[in-house]
């Protein structure tokens, strides 16, 4: 139980800042698109006999590269939708030929109840790397969010940074899908970030609040699940939404 709780807390800390950056760069549907595209990894694992985590990472890299290249030709969220639909269609056609539903079920809800210490160590290692990168590049990321042309004139490598943001985001989401399932990604990625936006006055504050909201939703959802014997993922999602509604009401009536 301790291991599950620690994993949920670690993933909350990992996803919360990425959710903020996703909103700042207007990639609002990136995680939805990637989650759909990652269903393809089930087929990939089946054909190439690869562990699913590696298949997901490969699909995440392909997805990110395609989004990054094609965004120069059309609206970025439309491109995300286009690519995820393509992956989904191919997956469904291939899946109709093979009976491999177990892979897809595992992706929806993750392997959180069978998690082992080495998986937590993997999450913690990624956590340290992501926060170190954030510490170093946050200012550049924020300037790019304000106005890419100003960032470019200030000699920030705008396209390179954007590609790495997408790549890291995709890899973090892929690892999180494997552990906590696709269902929970939105609850720990986007909802804490939009909740934090209601109370934060600066980008750093927004990241801090989104981490706090993610952790509270994770811990409360976990306890809710234990006390009332509810499924874990929906319990955490319900808590995230409850926190968001509370902050919205506070903002409306007490701001």
């Amino acid at each position: 139980m301790t291991l599950i709780l620690l994993t949920i807390i670690s993933i909350s800390i990992l996803l919360a800042p990425m959710g903020c950056i996703m909103l700042w760069h207007r990639y609002n549907y990136f995680h939805d698109g990637l989650v759909h595209a990652c269903l393809f990894s089930g087929i990939f694992s089946y054909f190439f006999n690869l562990p699913q985590i590696f298949s997901m990472m490969i699909v995440a890299i392909i997805f990110t590269t395609l989004v990054f290249i094609l965004k120069f030709y059309s609206n970025k969220n439309a491109i995300v939708s286009l690519i995820s639909t393509t992956f989904l269609a191919i997956t469904m056609i291939l899946a109709s030929k093979f009976n491999e539903r177990t892979l897809f079920d595992a992706m929806l809800f993750g392997d959180i109840f069978t998690i082992e210490w080495h998986s937590l160590c993997l999450v913690l290692s990624i956590l340290v790397i992501i926060w170190a990168l954030l510490w170093k590049y946050l200012d550049q990321i924020v300037i790019m969010s304000i106005d890419p042309s100003i960032a470019k004139i200030a000699n920030h490598p705008v396209h390179l940074i954007e590609f790495f943001i997408l790549l890291i985001l995709a890899l973090v989401i892929a690892v999180s899908i494997k552990l906590i399932g696709a269902f929970l990604i939105g609850s720990l990625l986007i909802i804490p970030a939009i909740g934090a936006r209601l109370i934060a006055k600066s980008p750093r504050e927004m990241i801090t609040w989104s981490v706090i909201i993610g952790i509270i939703a994770g811990i409360c959802g976990f306890n809710l699940s234990l006390i009332y014997d509810w499924p874990l993922s929906p319990s955490i999602s319900i808590m995230s939404v409850a926190i968001y509604i509370t902050l919205t009401l506070k903002q409306k009536f007490y701001a």
């Binding site: 207007r26 200012d139 304000i146 100003i150 004139i153 936006r197 600066s202 980008p203 504050e205 927004m206």
Partner: peptide, 25 residues
Amino acid sequence: ISYAPQQISINHDLPMTAKSFLEYI
């Protein structure tokens, strides 16, 4: 070189005060 665009389309999801805007740019 510095540049003042005609207008900046502020992303409403990015919290920023006028002071922190100056500090970043």
